[in-house]
Design a protein around this nucleic acid. Structure first.
Lengths: 342, 342
DNA sequence: TTGAAAGCGCTAACAA
DNA sequence: TTGTTAGCGCTTTCAA
């Protein structure tokens, strides 16, 4: 390409570069640009990265792309990345700790400038610490137990979270406010901070009113699926006397809620007349199911944007301040909740 | 790292390499491995790529990640890529031609070994040809008009498609078989081959029975959204006499179908009693909406697998044979379709 | 304003 | 079995 224009590669490089094209004679530059266009020349980003030591690339680790929540998060990341010419490299963990290690390793090998991790389990603390020693890490959506350094001080972290405790508390308080006194939750695994928060919010709401009984089964959902919600609700409701049966169920996830509704129907009961159900996430189409699901809407895209901004500020060496951003969810009332009929 | 082990970098490289570690003394190799582990050393994939001329990376261009169909396609690609240690780089176009050019350009700059494109518009023919001159291209899901070379011969291409014509024909034939005689379709844009196929299948089914009338409105959906389905159905049904109103609607997409159902209800009609509705895609939760939607299930994941396999065979220099793989969809009957009541 | 030269981290010939 | 050397394609001093 440089040859076609009859110049040295260094000159060509300068002509093509956004910040030093001023250093080259405008007629030479024109010649270079023309030759480049003619040959369809694209600078080799791999070589550029090797030379510059930076890849203009951002690792984004999500648990599961078939969960629209994470897709929305990615869109938020992209909102911020695109104008900077940064390419997000997306990896999925399927909530498997081994896969998390593998994909993060791979992203590091590819020298992403930073990594946003939205798929940690609370047992990943040590691993994340080791990653932080290598590249900037932003924790999104899910957090870790407070880290301490060797002196017992709390070590700063960059994270963008949503207030799951508040989201759950608001939803469950709503159930109590409209009259429910026997309530149960369908819990997600406590290996994930989000579900811990939702559980705490649930309990805070429950204990605020001494007349409310918590009828939850101790078993926890191993996955956030319709099938699992169905299974847990079956064991929750079966072989129970009427007065030991909840009149409302708070599910940690929309799909669990859908499974709950399926189970309720199969037992010959109705939602919301016999049992109200609340979900979590406000997934697409969840307003069109039967009955339209009351749920908690999450600021996924906003969270993605914040995560990306934290990443870029970390890259540009704002090594200084650890940051915790906390966004608030919003309860959305639809038809799956109603006052108890008895 | 090599220094810590006290060996030359070349030796370290060999020790770490999967195919030449046999060439190094096993005790030196052990030393190298230990030093690497101790330092948490990860070979720089950027440098490896530059040296090897290959990135072990596969570009995957999709229209829209919030469409679960494409996520499923991605999973299929991943099924094949993971065992080979290949990393898919995902990019979205949002069905914008400019964005398609931009993201493919970027993938080429990053020297992906091949690119799977599932987001072409029929007007992208020239552009795709220019890309094919640079790297192996696999067309997935959507195809292009048959290309001709300068001699008028049909030029080979690698593509993995689904038979949309057959999918649509099967669905519409079902409507006819259960008695519908006045039918309309909600068309997707003819800029995308999939919708052309669905339209053809629709017409083939319609014309097979002379008693069936096509009551479609000429307007076409500009996006595959609930809002658009709602809008089109409103204009389709409003100001029509009963006998000029379809008793069944075939939508080119599930979301359009959901919008159609919304519109039907708002006009005081019922689905399926007054108007049956068929969708296309079998999206998640679409079996839980009210009423559960009859639709066409697509082999997205399979298609992803095939696309990836085509990509890898192209990379390994099977430059030979152009291939067209065509997978068949499956009609799924649920409760949004019933015989006409009049 | 341009060219020459070095070097980013790695691997593959080639030599020893 | 290991070391030496060259070079992948680029950018950036440094010199001219």
């Amino acid at each position: 390409m440089a040859e076609l224009a009859g110049v040295h590669v260094a000159t060509a490089s300068r002509a093509l570069s956004a910040n030093q094209f001023g250093l080259v004679n405008s007629s030479t530059r024109k010649r270079v640009l023309e030759s480049a266009a003619q040959l369809g020349y694209r600078p080799n980003a791999v070589a550029q990265s090797l030379r510059k030591g930076t890849t203009d690339t951002l690792g984004v680790v999500v648990a599961d792309l078939s969960n629209p929540y994470f897709v929305e998060l990615l869109r938020g990341v992209d909102d911020e990345a695109k104008p900077l010419g940064v390419m997000p490299l997306v990896a999925e963990t399927h909530d498997d700790p081994g896969t998390l290690r593998r994909v993060v390793s791979r992203l590091i090998a590819n020298r992403v400038d930073a990594v946003i991790v939205s798929a940690v389990h609370i047992t990943d603390q040590e691993f994340i610490k080791s990653v932080e020693a290598q590249i900037p890490v932003i924790l999104a959506v899910r957090t870790l137990p407070d880290p301490e350094d060797s002196h017992g001080h709390i070590d700063g972290r960059r994270e963008a979270l949503q207030d799951d405790l508040m989201g759950a508390r608001t939803a469950v308080s709503h159930l109590i406010n409209i009259g429910h006194r026997r309530i149960a939750q369908l819990q997600g695994t406590p290996a994930i901070s989000s579900f811990i928060g939702r559980s705490q919010g649930y309990h805070e709401a429950i204990t605020q009113n001494p007349n409310v009984r918590d009828l939850s089964h101790q078993e926890v959902a191993q996955s956030s699926t319709i099938a699992e919600g169905y299974r847990l609700t079956k064991t929750l409701l079966e072989h129970r006397l009427l007065m030991d049966r909840p009149t409302a169920i708070f599910a940690h996830n929309d799909l669990l809620a859908v499974g709950a509704i399926d189970a309720i129907r199969e037992l010959g009961l109705r939602c919301p007349e016999d049992i109200s159900v609340v979900g979590y996430n406000d997934a697409p189409l969840i307003d069109h199911i039967d009955p339209p699901l009351s749920t908690v809407r999450l600021p996924a895209r906003e969270l993605g944007r914040h995560s990306a901004r934290l990443a870029f500020s970390a890259i540009s060496g704002d090594a200084s301040s650890p940051v915790r951003i906390m966004l608030v969810p919003e309860f959305v009332e639809r038809s799956s909740t109603a006052p108890p009929s008895i």
